[in-house]
Amino acid sequence: MIVGALSVILAFGIPITAIITSHIQKQTKMQQEMLKDQLELEKLKHENYLIETEKMRLELEKIRLENPKDEIKLM
C-alpha cells in the first residue's frame, strides 16, 4: 500500500515540480525584461527633456536676435 502511494507521488511529483520551477524561471525572466524596458523608457524620457530644454533655449536666443530692442524695453 505504502509502496503504491510512493510510486504515485514520485510519478506525478517530479513533473509537477519541473512545471512549477519552469514557471517561476519564466516569471523572473519576464520581470527582468520589464525592468530593462522601464529603465530604457526613463532614459528616453530624460533625453527628451534635455532636448526640449535645449530647444527652448534656442527659441529664446532666436527671439533675442530677431528683436534686440525688446530686451531693453523689458527692463
Binding site: 527633456y49 534635455l50 530644454t53 535645449e54 527652448m56 533655449r57 529664446l60
Partner: peptide, 10 residues
C-alpha cells in the same frame, strides 16, 4: 533637479 537643469540652461 530638472528645474535646476532648466535654470542652468535657459
Amino acid at each position: 533637479e530638472e528645474v535646476a537643469t532648466k535654470v542652468f540652461t535657459l
